[in-house]
Design a binder for these strands. Structure first.
Lengths: 203, 203, 203, 203
DNA sequence: TTGTAATCGAGACGGTACGTCCTGTCTTTCC
DNA sequence: GGAAAGACAGGACGTACCGTCTCGATTACAA
């Protein structure tokens, strides 16, 4: 039932993933079709259906191929010792990527597929977002060890507190995603919403 | 060119919106079709195409109808004076709604339509999310006036800092959305990530 | 369930039948596809599937359209009083048609569809072959009344005895279908296989 | 180019022919596929494509295998001296076979392949129908020598006059194929259509 | 006795067509 | 003129086969 991976044709696999990624930026999401991907890749439709369970899974693998090609396995955030500066810099890069016409539509496509497909979401969490999230946690852990972050801090929550607002604003298009906004998110997340005076004098 | 709203049949309009909402929870998103909505509503397809520009717009109006029916126009967050308790309670209610099988699929459907359609996003931001966001801002403003929140705080960012992580985790399915998580988000957002000692000595 | 014939688009119907007939002579039978007919006719596939149950049924209607266009309702065989001459002439015309490149492939296509589809065969027997067969019977009946044919003769069998060998040789390609052959079939069928002497002395 | 027959695997060949024949009676003609035959025979598709040029050729060989297995090489018609009785008996057996569910569909399948494939038709005429037709001619020749059939009779035409109507009615499904019909065909073919009185008095 | 070359089962491949579903438009008929 | 109904051209779906191809694994002939 599961096809024999050994006999798989690597050139076709790459052609499909490349076609999927390229088309997802060229045509609007609703018109991204398996038929179109197969045609662009010069491949029979069955070759796609044989190896991937859904359009979203193809897209996911396309991103995976890209990320594997680009990175030297373990990604890491910059660590200059200045956490706020480092986070600000990273988020500015993220904003640039999210607004980059080469990536925006493909990323929206993947994000919405994930929103409707738990299995795909799990794969994403594990294989694409996982390493990235670990890098983020590492940077925060480093700052925590240096006494810059609260001791009892839940690092997962901390990561969400910084990236959650940004990703949510981007995906839901509440407002344009700017570096001013992300800079402010970093500062506010680090300092918290509370009035300093209140807490400090209370202490 | 624009159809005459005066002659519009209200019963058909409501039937369409009800059918759209109901179907969006019954069938998986990919199988939600205008054809299906029309059939369920007992309405000609043209009646939908005449009044709405897209499937997402129908869904949007369906939510609008629901929200108008339920609320007395201006929504407001509870204000007991204890900000953390109030936010925690509100977020717990939000989690319950996001996880409610009656709303989860329809909300995901609307969210993904928004992610691909700027016009729809603008309508959402203005008419559905707008009043809600204003209520959130109001609650924070009240706390700010009471000296509980930092003076220079950007309330839009503050709102995002609390709701962004939650909505992002829900939509991207990074992990199950629990009240433990949202409670922690509230506390962490209010207190900030930084170590108190650090900031104080640094100040 | 059954589509509403009243709203049917006549131009599409004719385009489909014309395309079906034309393609059945241009491409080899195995490559005659509904998809191809729809494309040639400039029609959606569904329009074919809506009105015809099978490829053979389309082909059948194509022949029906042709025959209705050509004939003034009741076909008749020539009746000069000389039965053998009349039959010979008719069969020569039949041979010409069966060997005519415009008709050969379409007719083979229809014949083989009939061979596998009893419903289609019944429709053929009633609507296409029926009137023709009646004309053949009529001519024989006329000869019978004139005392030229045996009194107890079963006219259905008589018709088969003349046309059966011809059609069978054509369809099964046992040997080239020539007028020499059909002339001989007519003579032999009329006279019978038996030696005259034998029967007479036996009588 | 031509594969080496010496190395051919006989068990696969038989499995293929058996599967082809069996499937041609089990599934409707349009669903008879090389893929299905290979699967049923437990054979790679290439093994079929290596040795046969077409589906019809496989079917033809399947019939050939059957006919060689059953018969002692030269078939012969019964010759009791009573031609009419002998022909009637043979045709009754033919009718039984044509109506036998074990043979009907396979025979229709072969017949329609032949109708579209001249090469296959030639092979059929020579190797399958040839010996049978020779036997029919032999029986008629015997009767002719005994003075029962007209001297100048063309035996090929004579054979067609008897079997043509039967095969044509069977293949085109004009009407159910019964022994009453074939009995009548034999009698009528032998006696001819003409009125005896006419010919006799004319003589 | 051991290559070595062809056949074999298996099944992936680029394609074509299937028959179904839906899109967005159009037309008919009723109200 | 809006509405229900639904036919229409078109396009994508996911499946089934086509005929070709490549892969080891037999298998038989020649060295």
């Amino acid at each position: 039932m599961t096809p024999n991976t050994a006999r798989r044709k690597e050139t076709s696999r790459r052609a499909i993933l490349t076609a999927a990624f390229d088309l997802s930026q060229e045509v609007e999401y609703a018109k991204l079709s398996i038929e179109g991907i197969a045609a662009r890749a010069g491949v029979g439709k069955q070759t796609i259906y044989r190896w991937w369970p859904s359009k979203g899974a193809v897209l996911f693998d396309a991103f995976l191929m890209l990320s594997e090609g680009a990175e030297g396995e373990q990604p890491a955030l910059p660590d200059t010792g200045d956490l706020e500066a480092d986070l600000t810099a990273v988020l500015r890069a993220t904003v640039a990527e999210l607004n980059d016409p080469r990536y925006e539509q493909p990323m929206r496509a993947l994000a919405t597929e994930i929103a409707h497909d738990p299995e795909l979401a799990a794969a994403y969490a594990e294989r694409l977002d996982g390493p990235l999230k670990e890098a983020k946690r590492q940077r925060l852990r480093s700052a925590q060890r240096a006494g810059q972050l609260a001791e009892g801090l839940d690092l997962d929550v901390a990561v969400d507190l910084i990236w959650g607002p940004v990703l949510n604003r981007w995906l839901q298009r509440g407002a344009p995603l700017t570096t001013e906004y992300t800079d402010l998110v970093v500062t506010t997340a680090l300092n918290g919403l509370r009035s300093r005076a209140t807490t400090e004098t209370a202490g």
